[in-house]
Simulated assay, not measured.
Amino acid sequence: MTLSPPLSLTRRSVLGSLAASLAGGPAFAQGDWPAGKLITWVVPYPPGGSTDVLGRNLALRVASSLGTNVIVDNKAGATGTIGAAFVAKAAPDGYTLLGTSIGPQAIAPHLMGKLPYDPIAGFEPVITIGTIPHILVVGAKQPFQSVADLLAAARAQPGKLAFASGGNGTILQMQGELLQQQSGVRFIHVPYKGDTPALQDTLAEQVQFMFAPAAAALPHVQSGKLRALAVTSAQRLKALPAVPTMGEAGLRDFVVEQWQAVFAPAKTPAPVVQRLNDEIGKALKDPAVLALADKLGVTLVGGTPRQLGDLQKADSAKWAKVIKDGNITAE
């Protein structure tokens, strides 16, 4: 004969479970997630960029390891903030992710006024995908042989030399602004609709210089069409061992790397965030992903959710100061 538990014990168990679910949100027992449900990986940029290409390759591997489907949804616009806002408003259940970069999460919020999301409080950091160093380049016919030469010319001609960027509010612009603030010189900022046209006009000598993503600039540097004056990474690049860092060129604390990362909506359960961190971390070690990242000029990172959160907060504070000190707006 099977004995039923006392009514009072049953009631206490039900009430305890109900209270726990109300207090802590959805309960995710081990094995309940992802349970075959579709996961959406939002990329807040158009298809074809490094964030999109790398995100799609990681999504395929995460789908395989989780035994579910992961689709990549490009929600481009407003410097990446449209896609970020979409994910911030999504259910915190682990089925909607944001594969993004430094712009929407640490720069744009300080330029664009009030956004429909909080870049820090609105998300759970999952993992850092990687970082992209930049190269300060000038056209081959420009007279500058070093950063010191460029700054000396700028001091001799205040507000005459121009630098290109991929647009207002981009990390490329921010580096030019940081250079002005650290050196005390003034340049003209020429924003373009994307990194490619900015690089084309730098090659054509229409502007004096730009901070270009390493992968985009390297072929032109190696062919002699561009001259590399410095790199923005903490260490010299293996591909350009003779080119100094900005620090070695005399600019202290000038380390700028464009990071890519994955975030989930705020209040996504910690076990789900950790599972995502584990699965994406494994995908980052895949030889094919490593080869792709090398081709894209991305140094893969990985790490913990907390490390990504610390990185985001530090960069947000850094660029907030640059933007405020330079009285920079999105227009």
Rank of each mutant, 00 (worst) to 15 (best):
M1F: 01
A108I: 15
G80R: 10
D310N: 07
S165E: 09
P158W: 01
L66K: 03
T2A: 10
P241M: 06
D195G: 01
A153M: 06
K193Y: 04
A35L: 00
R61H: 09
D294R: 15
S223K: 06
A234H: 04
H220P: 13
L136W: 10
A242L: 12
L38F: 00
P191Q: 08
D32H: 04
I129T: 12
M246K: 02
V243R: 06
G83K: 04
A242M: 09
D118H: 13
Q142S: 15
P191R: 08
S4F: 11
P125V: 13
L218A: 02
D73K: 15
G176R: 01
L115M: 08
A230S: 12
A314T: 14
I39S: 07
S64G: 13
L7P: 01
K225Y: 01
F28P: 00
V262W: 14
A261D: 05
V256A: 07
K193A: 14
I82A: 08
A291W: 11
I171A: 13
G159R: 05
V70M: 04
K318G: 02
R186G: 08
I323S: 12
G303T: 11
L66V: 05
D286G: 08
G130I: 04
G167Q: 03
P92M: 01
A164R: 06
V231A: 03
A91G: 01
L229F: 13
L15W: 13
Q260P: 00
T299A: 11
Q175E: 15
F209C: 09
L251R: 06
G302M: 03
L290W: 00
G130T: 01
E124N: 12
Y192N: 07
P305D: 05
A59C: 05
G122R: 04
T245H: 02
I280E: 02
